[in-house]
Amino acid sequence: MGSLFWRCIREYLWRAAHARSAARVLAEAEAALAAGAPGRPERLAELRAYPWWEVRNAALKLTALETGGSADALLCGLLHDRTDVGIVRRNAAAALGARPASPASAAALRRGAADPYWEVRREAVWALARVDPRSEATFDALRAAARRERASQVRMALARALGATGNPEALEPLELLSTAASWLVRLQSAVALAELAAAVPAHRERVRAVLARMERSSEGLTGRMVLADRMAVLDALLDTERWPAAGAVASLYFSPGTPWTRQ
């Protein structure tokens, strides 16, 4: 932590002293990104080691454009490089979630779900819901995270990911998340519970009871409005005999705001 602090200060001062060249290199990386062409591997390696994090961030996005296991390995390495800034590591997690699944990336994301920086945890959890939702190892990592997590944005992502696992045991951590102080977390938990009930019919009655309790306890008009809106849809789904495909329920989730490639 201390070394990262001093690295950031050093980089800031370096960038202030080399503002023009840093801007030129950043423009070069962003132009390559806009063209969708990562460029020469040597140049990309130079950009990844550049002493200004915005350039390294652009280089990471360029790396994510490449296919193959070497890019996966690089992104996994960036995700766990605690000497780099949070945004770069956060984007490494998001990039891994946007790529085809691999055992190495899933393992790296599971570790990322316990990272000290909340944005890395959030993206790692969102990414796990995409690349490896059904494995036992992922479920264990998500359940452990749901028990200790306090950041509401990460808890929202956890609810989404637990719903996507389709694991009958996800009911317990989701019930825990459905009592969160944040209505946004409760909302994501509600959708996740409905998704779980779609996958595990034996849970339907219990899920119905949890949803009814949540609707009464939602705080604030905005929360209540949105929650009531989504609850009406979920109630309609619960009342029908034919449960929709899990994907249809998942469409009720709020998705993260800005695409990672723009940050």
Partner: peptide
Amino acid sequence: GRRFFSRAPLHDALLLKGTG
């Protein structure tokens, strides 16, 4: 290269935390 709050300004961070 990191966010101190889930969102800024303060009222957005509180809103995102789930306060009405």
